[in-house]
Design a protein around this nucleic acid. Structure first.
Lengths: 234, 234
DNA sequence: CCCGGAAACTAACGTATGTTCGTTTTCAAG
DNA sequence: CTTGAAAACGAACATACGTTAGTTTCCGGG
């Protein structure tokens, strides 16, 4: 009994990827074993190799496809948002969240199984990730240029924003208390209020915890100056 | 040649934990193997079992100790900050970042090897984590109560803030461009501007893209209701 | 109808891994 | 000096895993 009746290469390949996503998401790449994957797909372990090169190749394919899709869809969303920097920033935030809600597993895998990729594969994925971060950094820079945003360091801000937005996936559940739209609204506000230029009360809001004294002196002088450029001793 | 001259139980145990932290941090729990650990410590694989119960027990010990320390030190930092809600919030942010800078490996392990814990161990760590989140939620609630903070949903805000702050550890490097203090200042500002009450321009900034309807009904009544229970599996 | 490839099967290989076991050596207490 | 626990050793066990090999069956094109 081999070559089961009605078997279909494309369908099996899709089932493998789908099951692999779930297994890696739940157990991690290293802890996932191909026998369990084969069982879930409904074929024998050896048959997997009609559709994958190696376990490592399977992981890379899953991650690379996800990253490519994320980049493409993000660009589409930004294009649809038009030229206004703030509109584009809102579009980025909303798209990031909605895409991540939709594909929690892929996102999680791409973020936390990066280290499981062998060097050449690793480098390729990192490059795609950099590219994605670069899009947000560019948006923030654009907002700073128009004066609508007030961000001392757009790189740091971009990483912080991405961490915050991506973090939602770790606890979001479709049947949870809050809808996707509510979460988008909440996080849009959190992000924008964090980077927007506020009238009047500009300075001293990042004052060190202990001393409420340094209240009125700095005004907004340092807002545009780059952060201390060089490293410290050790 | 066994029981090497000058050997010392406590020192070996510490070396095991230290090496295990590094190995799990770099390779992940499942991918770490005890032979490599033993080699790094400088003993034979079997000798590990003079100091650990099982591989799983070692992971649990590492995580549980970290969580206990985090809770204890956080409480100390909050106590030192006095009673003012905003001062306490600043203290929480600063302490969270500094602690996480100091112990990046433990933090990473505690966050991303949770799933590698067997159910009973998993439950105990989750409880500690809940407790930590609870401290921030309480701080936000206190700020809302005094009117200094303006937060539609303190649970969501707390998770978002923790994700943002913890995310810094994924890219912070001691010899990087920004010092710890600068990062604390930047993130304190990002967080506080995200949750602070802004004068005048209060409303409509979180308007949902699609349906602005469900806006005025809940107000902040539901800020206290618990989220739908988190489940592990998919 | 026939035939070659696609896609499945069974079986096994080689290795790696967590863990156990019995032994041996050091050190400190009596 | 004796003794017993602590802490190391080397060896092995049992299993699990990724992967390969050879074989068998179904299906579509000639």
């Amino acid at each position: 009994m081999a070559r089961i009746s009605g078997s279909n290469g494309a369908r099996t390949a899709a089932a493998i990827r789908s099951s692999a996503r779930g297994l890696i998401y739940r157990h991690g790449y290293a802890a996932m074993n191909l026998r369990e994957l084969a069982t879930e797909v409904g074929i024998s372990p050896g048959s997997l190799y009609n559709h994958i090169t190696t376990k490592q190749g399977l992981l890379f394919d899953l991650i690379a496809e996800h990253m490519a899709a994320l980049l493409a869809e993000t660009d589409a969303a930004l294009a649809a948002a038009g030229p206004d920097p703030m509109a584009r920033l809102r579009a980025f935030i909303a798209h990031h969240l909605l895409y991540h809600f939709e594909r929690r597993q892929e996102v999680f895998i791409a973020n936390f199984e990066l280290r499981s990729l062998e060097p050449p594969n690793h480098a390729r994925v990192v490059a795609m990730r950099r590219s994605y971060e670069g899009r947000l950094i560019a948006l923030l820079d654009a907002g700073v240029a128009t004066g609508e945003l007030d961000i001392p360091d757009t790189h740091v801000a971009a990483y912080a924003i991405l961490a915050m937005l991506t973090g939602v996936c770790t606890w979001y559940r479709p049947d949870g208390r809050l809808s996707k739209e509510e979460l988008v609204a909440l996080h849009t506000r959190l992000v924008l209020d964090g980077v927007r230029r506020h009238r009047g009360e500009a300075a001293a809001r990042a004052a060190p915890p202990a001393r409420p004294a340094a209240k009125a002196q700095g005004k907004r002088a340092r807002a545009k100056t780059p952060l201390s450029p060089r490293r410290r001793g050790g």
